[in-house]
Design a protein around this nucleic acid. Structure first.
Lengths: 340, 340
DNA sequence: TTGAAAGCGCTACCAC
DNA sequence: GTGGTAGCGCTTTCAA
């Protein structure tokens, strides 16, 4: 009875044994045929019978069983959390996935929202990924890296503000963005610089170092730096603009172009001239920033390409004993337009 | 020799047998303790020994082995392709992930870029997900659904323009967006309506039905509809604006707010008055659209909430025999501002 | 309260 | 060329 097929919903999932039975061969043969094992020659008629049987049953191999047998996976794990990401970043992710797939890896994005570092690392380790690529949404500790490696990960790669012990690190020091913005504003003769700090969750990983970067440049030069919290809402921006003159600022680095556009509009509506009274600069070089009047100055950030990163992953997997590479790859450059 | 621990990199991955050995108990006991199996009482000292041993070895259970044994997973598969998605969508995804995790599912985003429907369905089926949630980036056929169900998926849910046989469908008819935009423009007395069709890849899944929606309303009313291809670049918009008057349009539905902002700027720069000479409407109700002058009119789209969708998934998984639900849930509403 | 052992589906070694 | 079969790591039934 347990073998009686009924509704397709009830019929149990076909295994390679079912295929073998239907084709009248052994499971070994099925495996050889379906995997095109070159070490073994199977006659063409047999191959056909096997393929047809597989087709008829709708056979799909069981990844978990294969993994267990093989002792390793080709999973590259990409932990994600909730970060309101821009178009640059999502394009980068696609590019990366595509490049990794070409190298025959399976990219799995694993949502880790609401897990702390330890729990997250354990959850990832359960999947036995061959590599973990942490893009900075979740901060990894050296201990987490150790857990992952112990679970068989050949490579742990972090893309973030600092080097992590034991991991290949792509150090993207976000301070650089703040540094560039501040240098530019100083050069334009500004001396009292506001720095927008988004109130939205999850962005402090980026905003804090950027603020630090501004400070690092501005304060030694005798300029004042004032952090300005701002929620991404029209009302919040209007409220800020209303008390703007009281702040006595002559420039603002607005975290990124979206916040900059928001703030600039409110400033203009409040009668504050940009850039004459207050210079405004954003970051990310969004197309939309170019559409404003005055056109928005910005800090363009050079992202590493997905292709490049995929190659690094592959290299690290192939040579796990290799010395952790450490690249400093934050390139940031001011694009001056009309708002500064 | 094969058991001699050396560098941590070389030491083989600890299994529950290793934990058992170290704790001086059987593998069964280890399993009981680590899974808090309530059907079995284990003495407190034993529990402690087991936990300590696991901790010391850095033991992490092997998901594939557990899956194989259990015969099913708790994976909800979320296929993704490259679609340049907006902030609404990515927030929705986070929300969904979070809600699903609370229901004890493991959300796996699986990049399927460059796979056709059949190959993709097979690849997904290998993971034996308990549910597949196709958010419309990849069009599923009834056949694909069948493959997935045969591989044990209890629920296949699609969010897209049309119902898919065998799947629970959340029908989001994108035509609705075009319909609303067109109705509004007609109401404002416009009779020659341009419809921006993005040249970017992957967007036609959305743009085609939206265009159809405009036609559906405008043509019976005696208005003209003209598709206008546009790449998301400043130069392309400028070029289009330069030949705008030749098109003889008095209104344009610009696909979404981003394209609308781009085009509106170029139109204004070309001396075309908005809305007097040409009305412009977008879609998505982005914050940035409110910042333009004139403020951008838009079609606000009501997204289903992640919470709601997670509950639907859970319901479908618990009762796989249930009749496929079919919800029509595209709510779209015009937000009139100043550009129309 | 604990242990022995079967078996999930697959691949690869070895024998025929 | 093809088949038999061990064993990957885990959970769970049954026995002690």
């Amino acid at each position: 009875m347990s073998q009686t097929p009924r509704h397709s919903a009830e019929r149990s999932v076909p295994t390679s044994a079912d295929v073998a039975r239907l084709a009248g061969v052994s499971r070994a043969t099925v495996s050889y045929v379906l995997n095109n094992t070159s070490a073994v020659r199977i006659s063409e008629p047999t191959r056909r019978r096997v393929r047809e049987a597989a087709e008829e049953l709708g056979y799909v191999p069981h990844a978990a069983a294969r993994t267990l047998r093989a002792g390793h996976t080709r999973i590259v794990l990409l932990p994600t959390a909730h970060i309101p990401v821009g178009p640059l970043y999502s394009r980068f992710i696609s590019e990366l996935q595509w490049a990794l797939r070409r190298l025959d890896y399976t990219v799995v994005q694993y949502g880790s929202l609401g897990l702390d570092g330890d729990a997250a690392a354990r959850a990832w380790a359960e999947l036995r990924p061959v590599a973990v690529l942490s893009l900075g949404e979740i901060a990894l500790t050296a201990q987490n890296v150790e857990v992952l490696k112990r679970s068989g990960a050949k490579a742990v790669i972090t893309l973030g503000p600092q080097h992590v012990e034991g991991a290949h690190s792509l150090v993207m020091d976000q301070r650089e963005v703040g540094v560039r913005a501040a240098e530019h504003l100083l050069e334009r003769g500004r001396r009292r610089i506001g720095v927008v700090v988004p109130e939205e969750q999850g962005l402090d990983l980026f905003s804090a170092p950027r603020l630090a970067g501004v400070r690092q440049v501005a304060e030694p030069a005798g300029a004042t730096v004032l952090p300005v919290p701002l929620a991404y809402e029209e009302e919040a921006a209007d409220a800020l603009a209303a008390r703007w003159r009281g702040l006595g600022l002559d420039a603002v680095y607005a975290y990124n172009d979206e916040y900059a556009m928001l703030l600039m509009r409110s400033l203009q509506d409040a009668g504050i001239a940009v850039p004459d009274e207050t210079a405004v600069i954003g970051a990310d070089d969004l197309l939309l920033g170019r559409l404003l009047r005055p056109r928005l100055s910005t800090v363009r950030i050079d992202m590493v390409t997905g292709q490049l990163l995929a190659e690094l992953v592959d290299r690290a997997v192939r040579d796990p004993t290799g010395v952790p590479e450490r690249h400093d790859l934050m390139g940031a450059e001011v694009v001056r337009r009309e708002s500064t």
